[in-house]
Amino acid sequence: MTKPIEVKQDAPIVINRTATKSYALQESAIVKWSLITISLLFLALFLILPLITIFVTALEKGWDTYVASITHPDALAAIKLTLTVVLIVVPLNTIFGVAAAWVITKFNFKGKNLLITLIDLPFAVSPVIAGLIFILLFGAQGLFGDWLFANDIKIVFALPGILLATIFVTFPFVARELIPLMQMQGVTEEEASISLGASGFKTFWLVTLPNIKWGLLYGIILCNARTIGEFGAVSVVSGHIRGLTNTMPLHIEILYNEYQFTAAFAVASLMSILAIITIIIKNIIEWKAKEV
């Protein structure tokens, strides 16, 4: 039959093809280098410089002050609360995102476009408004306020409110990442799996999930980053109770407003480190995904 193709010889050609820029788009050296310089200067000014400032200010008064700032009980409470929120919100939004993407890409039903639009809603709505929605629903003067008070359930100014607001703001990330990917992949592999006698669950676990895993991880990373950093919505519903309902961004704001710059920047540096780690993981994932 046909001769087996030599993939190892073939692969570099493909890479070269993507690496070599179109001849038609070649610019003169001056244009090229000035564009590169502008981009680098812009990044240095608006990203690198602030990042350095954070660390410099945080360590201004020495290592001991830095350690003291981030081990202060209020700071530790804020870190703990933020991590709690992450541990609850990210898994929930991952499940929701996969389910929504699955439903949208594998089935045809009425109201599909509406669902896609609704998933995008948090991107369009200001986080502050997202927070206000929950105050209006569950606050003391809110729609369910009396009932919640009568039953002694606290949502606003407590962990449940922070969770709800964060979920609202971050739920598009996983779904938005998966929908185009799953649309591109289509349903034939799933059909093949079913026709070979696999159950729906096995099809999802053995065929769908491995195909979307890099996209899914990427979505989770983005969702995670936003969950840690969310300020607006959480600020409205948290009530800023020190040691209880302050997440890391809120804690930083309070410290800053109290002129405790070193402490504020110390906690900020912690968040920056988290952000940098996130970006590194994101890049590893992108690189891995490209390999597949």
Binding site: T188, E189, E191, A192, S193, S195, L206, V207, N211
Partner: peptide, 10 residues
């Protein structure tokens, strides 16, 4: 079932 574009598990 043999699919038109094979639908192999990639």
């Amino acid at each position: 079932f043999v699919f038109q574009h094979y639908a192999l598990f990639r």
